[in-house]
Structure formats: C-alpha cells, structure tokens
Design a protein around this nucleic acid. Structure first.
Lengths: 114, 114
DNA sequence: GAATGCACTATCCTTTAGGAAAGTGCTATA
DNA sequence: TATAGCACTTTCCTAAAGGATAGTGCATTC
C-alpha cells in the first residue's frame, strides 16, 4: 500500500535553513558576532557592549564560535598578557543574515507602534 | 568618577536583531513558515513536510505564529470541517531572512565537505 | 596596601524547549 | 463494523539554555 502523500515537499529549503539554525540558534551567538565584527576585541568590552550577558554565558558562546571557525582567540604575549577575539574571514558570510534580521527587526518595531 | 568606556557601541544593530530573534528563535518557527509559504495548509501536511516535529510542538508553534500575525488559522465550514493555515501578507517580510539562512546553510555544508 | 581591571571559572538554580507516547472526538472510507 | 484520517490535547519527562552570585590569580593604578 503506498502511503498518501499530499503535502508539498520543501526540503530543498528546509535542510540548509536547519543547518544554519543549528549554528546560530540561541539568544547570543549573533549578537556576539556583531559586537566582535564592529571591533570589540576584549572579553570585557564584548561583555559590556552586549548588556545583560553574564561572563559564564559569554565564555561558552565564544568557545562555540571559535569551534565554528567564525572567530579566533588571539593571545598577545606582552606584559600583561592580552587576549583578543577577532573575526575570521568566514564571519563575513553572516553579514547577509545579520542585515536581514536587522531590517526585519526595525520594520517589526515600526509595525508594533502603529 | 566616570566609568571607563572603551567598548564600541553596536546597539543600533543589536536591538533590532534581538527583536527579530525574539520572534524567530527556536528550532521550528522558520521551518514551519517555509512549509506554509510553499503551500502546505493542513496540520498533518505541515507536520509531514517537516520531518520529526511532534504534533504538540507544531500546535504550539502555530499558535505563536498566529499571534505574531504571520499566519492565519482558517476554518472552512464544509462537512467535514477543514482547518487551513495560510500565510498572512506580513509573512513575505521574512523571505530575506530565509534566503540568507538558506544561502549560508548551503555554503556551510559545502565548506564542511572540502 | 587597597582598590580596580582583566579573563575568566565554579556552583547552584530556574526556565524553556522539546520529545515520547498515548488518547480524544469527530468523520470517512473499506 | 473496523480501520484510518484529521487536528489536535494530555501527561510525563529530559536536556539544554540561561541567569545569579561569588571567587580566582594576576597585574596595574591610586
């Protein structure tokens, strides 16, 4: 017996969207990337540029982003030792996502107040 | 004493991005919207077009999307009664987000296999 | 020598997301 | 009359996300 299949397939779109969501899901990854990409490099600077993020969460998210090759943790051996977070070239690939979300968010806010 | 402020502000971007994430965060909202926008209308069709989503989760997400005015629940009073989920015009505004995520996901997958 | 900054880690806790499995009330079909 | 489809709901549960608070070791600055 062949099962009834009336639904429209959309896996072409769904699969890559899922792959992207697997990387960026959660409250913090995209905001952190934005902060680093505008030029914040130090742990505390990033923390302060994104209000309300706790150091524990920030540390964990930075590690995730490093694993995904979106940022790099750079150790500068001066005295005192400095640690810098820098965007990898691959990070540029997320600019269209950020732009789309930013645009949408701005428009959504307008919509709410009319 | 004025506090030291060395970090670069990026709230212009961060705020709207957050607003957007507040709406779309989670594993399912965007995939469900995609499914409805390609033309799936019935609960079970949507469920089957997105493999692995449970009816409980789908029901909840559909309610959220309705609240955000992205879809509409339409009751057709034939016999038997039909229930259809249809995209609202506002749903079109998320196309750039989907496209950006899809593009990124495709490219990311390529990257992983090279 | 006291306070502050830096880059975290550690502990504990709450909330939310999400999944598994079964069931419900209705209708239609074999 | 039994089975299947539809659109869910209910219950129970786990894992992950995220937050609060404190502390650490080091260095610099007041």
């Amino acid at each position: 017996m062949t099962p009834k299949q009336s639904y429209l397939s959309c896996l072409d779109t769904l699969k890559p969207v899922r792959d992207a969501l697997d990387v960026f899901n959660g409250k913090w990854k995209l905001p952190i990337l934005v902060s680093i990409m505008v030029g914040n490099e130090r742990f505390t600077d990033i923390q302060h540029s994104i209000s309300c993020i706790t150091p524990k969460v920030l540390a964990k998210e930075l590690k995730d982003l490093e694993e995904h090759k979106l940022i790099r943790r750079v150790i500068i051996n001066e005295y005192p030792v400095k640690i810098l977070y820098r965007p990898e070239p691959y990070a540029e690939s997320i600019i269209p996502i950020i732009d789309a979300l930013k645009e949408w968010g701005l428009n959504h806010r307008k919509k709410l107040f009319t």
